Amino acid sequence: MITSILLALINGGCISICRIINGRLGQETGALNASLWNHLVGFGFLCLVVWLMAATSGSSASIAATLDAPLLAWTGGIIGALFVTLNSYVLPRLGASLTALLVIGGQLLTGVALDAMSRGVNAIQLLGVLLILAAVWLTKRSG
């Protein structure tokens, strides 16, 4: 459990760094070009990693299983590309902190809505979302 928590925290740092880098690239080339290069370089990197993992394990079963995934599962790539594009556009205009707070607020609202549809929501979850949104409002108000 601790390893998963640490990995999630590291992932959050990676997302913040990626947003800043893509936001800077977006200023120079435009949000769509920044997203395109982000995904092309990421695609090349992941191809290399998957190829190395398949070569060392001697199995390509994971690639075949991916091709059998339901159509809805493939929409994650579209949403990921949209996420990078929107961040590349918004971050230079709002700054890293406010963008991060708004993105986290959006993630929390979406998570609570999805939980509500599948298994219900408790008061602590709603309070957490309200605190994040209050932080966004305070940040925006003080700026």
Results as ranks from 00 to 15, higher is better:
I5H: 03
W137Q: 02
L9E: 08
D68Q: 12
V84R: 08
V90M: 14
S62W: 15
A135E: 02
Q107V: 01
I132S: 13
L126F: 09
G23C: 10
G77D: 04
R24K: 06
S97T: 06
G13M: 13
I20D: 05
G13S: 13
V84K: 06
I10N: 10
T99K: 15
A73V: 02
C18V: 07
L72V: 14
T56P: 01
L114P: 04
V41W: 13
S4A: 13
A69V: 03
N38R: 15
A31R: 01
A113V: 05
L94Y: 14
V121Q: 02
L6S: 07
V121G: 04
T56F: 10
A54Q: 07
S62N: 12
I5D: 04
L102D: 12
V121K: 00
L133P: 07
V121C: 13
G30R: 13
L46Y: 10
V136Q: 06
L67S: 07
G77C: 10
Q107C: 02
G106K: 09
L25G: 01
G12A: 08
I79F: 14
S97G: 07
G120W: 02
G111P: 01
G58I: 03
M117V: 14
L36Q: 04
T56M: 11
I63L: 12
I20Q: 09
N38K: 13
A54T: 06
V112K: 05
G42S: 10
S142H: 15
G77R: 11
K140M: 15
I15C: 10
G26I: 04
P70T: 02
A54V: 05
R19V: 14
M117D: 13
C14G: 10
L114S: 14
A69P: 04
W51F: 06
A65F: 14
